[in-house]
């Protein structure tokens, strides 16, 4: 069981790094914010696995906060002000 969890952690860590490489390469701001969202979900997964592996259930709360707030960031990114509405 623990081996499976560790394997999942390593795979998630690797996808984290790969997604970040994609972000650092050329891309539109929209690509980047989408990758940031992917990284956010990835981070939630890592936190959930770490909560089990390190036996720290408080990390579940961290995952909860991260999951809710990463949506706030993407809404903040996509909304435009009044004056830019027709731009």
């Amino acid at each position: 069981m623990t081996e499976m969890l560790i394997l999942a952690v390593v795979v998630l860590g690797a996808t984290f790094a790969l997604a970040l490489l994609g972000m650092l390469r050329q891309g539109t701001p929209t690509d980047r914010i989408l990758i940031a969202q992917l990284l956010g979900s990835n981070g939630v997964g890592l936190l959930l696995l770490l909560a089990l592996l390190q036996e720290q259930l408080a990390l579940l709360d961290v995952a909860l906060v991260l999951a809710i707030l990463s949506v706030v960031v993407v809404i903040a990114f996509t909304r435009r002000g009044k004056e830019q509405a027709d731009a």
Binding site: A36, L39, L66, L69
Partner: peptide, 30 residues
């Protein structure tokens, strides 16, 4: 901010990880 929150989680400091996730990554981003 997200990676720093994960680093605090790995350092077994969930309090700081929580503050970093809430303020450092989430609200500061907005």
């Amino acid at each position: 901010g997200l990676v720093v929150a994960l680093a605090w989680a790995r350092l077994r400091a969930p309090d700081i990880a929580l503050a970093e996730a809430a303020i450092g990554s989430g609200l500061a981003g907005a």
